[in-house]
Write a protein that binds this DNA or RNA. Structure first.
Lengths: 189, 189
DNA sequence: ATACCCATGTAAAAAGTTACATGATTAG
DNA sequence: CTAATCATGTAACTTTTTACATGGGTAT
């Protein structure tokens, strides 16, 4: 079997990410982009160059419908998920996740560093540590904000993703600090 | 200024990843690929489709030289890094890392899950937990192997990357377990 | 023999980013 | 009036994966 029908076509994870946003609330391409750069920035990103085309695709597949928002003075296009889109999204949710394709430049640099590069690497760790401290603060702020919304149905799942942010950031922070201490001890010898 | 000379051309991180491997030992494209799928698989990957073209590019830029391995019966091509390649690699090492472009499908699914999806999500967590347990075992095995090579100059840096593997895996494992417990407590209500 | 690594490579497709073009609205 | 933000979109480019083609060597 070589050809597959529309139902069997392999769909990109971008489509599902967009459908996910639409499953929470009808949104414009701009709104969706904001969701990614704000709430989801620590574990997902999408650029306009992908969002607008997949919105078009979602409409073609019958997973979303578009309507011009008449209450909006700029001509904002609101996309709304259809029942078919919801079903498609739900079945994607239940599928096993694709292997995470992780590419970590810092790890790569550490792995290939030679004894002469220790000072460079130390600087990278210090920069990273500063960024992680900031990220952790942002998570703690998010946690405070989230506690005000305990009543919402989505609260439990948001707590889980936030919890991952905190745990993984703390682990990486610990690693940076241990590594800096280790490099210091090497320098002193 | 629109055009830039070869020295200023923006280079892909794939080139540096390959130069990194070559900086440890002269290797063929096949060897390099094996490095990525074996030692580096937890934080970097490259496919043949990238490795062979960048090897060609590295030679063009004067960062590597190729020589047919005459001792090898299959016609293996050995690439060796040049002093210019080493210098280029070292200066890349010292540059700040590019922001990590992280896309985590599991997090995405958890974030968008609705109360009805709890059983699906639970299954995903269980699968993830099993994989992390395996990964952790692989790290511990690596640790045992590494201890036999304490004398080598690269040992300290390898310990650091391994340490990150262990810390980050444990953090994610903890998250999975907490989440499963949390979903269980929700189900019981 | 035959299956499975070793070994090199390419073509095409898919995925993703960046830079630009366009224009309305709002806040200072 | 001007800068920032809202808003839609596309073209060109870069990056990355996947699938294929090819063939020698090695172990059972």
């Amino acid at each position: 079997m070589i050809r597959e029908g529309a139902a069997g076509m392999k769909k990109s994870s971008t489509l599902f990410a967009v459908l996910g946003v639409l499953s929470k609330a009808p949104s414009s391409g701009y709104d969706i982009r904001r969701q990614f750069t704000e709430s989801l920035r620590y574990f997902w990103s999408e650029s306009y160059g992908q969002i607008y085309p997949v919105l078009k695709e979602a409409v073609q597949l019958g997973y979303a419908v578009m309507q011009q928002d008449s209450t909006d003075s700029r001509n904002k296009k609101l996309y709304r998920i259809t029942p078919a889109g919801e079903e498609c999204f739900r079945s994607w949710l239940a599928e096993p996740v694709n292997p995470l394709n992780y590419r970590d430049e810092l790890l790569l640099k550490v792995f290939f560093a030679k004894p002469e590069d220790q000072e460079s690497i130390r600087t990278l760790f210090e920069r990273e540590e500063a960024e992680l401290v900031q990220a952790k603060e942002a998570y703690l702020e998010q946690e405070r904000q989230l506690k005000l919304r305990m009543e919402e149905a989505d609260y439990p799942m948001w707590v889980l993703t936030l919890r991952y942010g905190i745990l993984s950031t703390e682990a990486r922070l610990q690693w940076c600090r241990e590594s800096i201490a280790f490099l210091t001890s090497m320098r002193e010898k």
